[in-house]
């Protein structure tokens, strides 16, 4: 299942690749609560959040996404707040138990290993912020348990359109 998370706004449609009936598009519009850090999705529910909003089952959605495509404004070398809220709410895609992966401790994945995580960062981004973003996405790959990661930096949303990735 292809999952696309983006913060592009209501009037913009992400259009990379052929339309697929299994595709899920998650619009990061901030119409949901941020993670409270209660760990109930690990310790009480089997992978789903206790907050009953549109992200209650986002852990299962991301846990089964292949590829997972994230389009986010680059903010200080990380994801924008609305995109990050989605990722924070999705920690139920892993188990509360720890393991050793890539030379560091990580959580055991609840779902089988997936192939591709692709991240598009757009907006003004310094070299230092790009390096930080690269480190974060590589760590995301390890934590979310993907085999491969692809990262693309674009200066603005118009470049997404020029690359045929979205339509206004």
């Amino acid at each position: 299942m292809k999952v696309i998370i983006h913060d592009l706004g209501e009037g913009i449609t992400f259009s990379a690749g052929k339309p697929d009936k299994d595709s899920v598009v998650v619009h990061a519009n901030n119409q949901y609560s941020p993670c409270r850090g209660c760990f109930k999705c690990w310790l009480k529910n089997a992978g789903f959040c206790i907050m009953k909003d549109s992200l209650q089952h986002i852990g299962a959605c991301i846990g089964q996404s292949d590829p997972l495509i994230i389009i986010s404004r680059c903010c200080y070398g990380g994801y924008s707040s609305p995109v990050k809220a989605i990722l924070d709410r999705a920690i139920g895609s892993s188990l509360p138990l720890f393991t050793w992966r890539g030379g560091q401790t990580h959580h055991i994945s609840r779902y089988p290993r997936r192939k591709l995580l692709r991240v598009y960062f757009y907006g003004e981004c310094t070299k230092f912020e790009q390096e930080t973003a690269k480190e974060i996405v590589e760590r995301n790959r390890l934590n979310l348990d993907y085999e491969k990661v692809e990262m693309i930096f674009l200066e603005n949303i118009e470049q997404l359109q020029e690359a045929g990735l979205c339509t206004f």
Binding site: C75, G78, K84, D88
Partner: peptide, 17 residues
């Protein structure tokens, strides 16, 4: 700050903005 999913939590990103 706590580390959430390898970076700053979403509410901290909003605060920083």
């Amino acid at each position: 700050v706590p580390l959430y999913v390898d970076g700053l939590p979403s509410h901290v990103m909003e605060f920083l903005s």
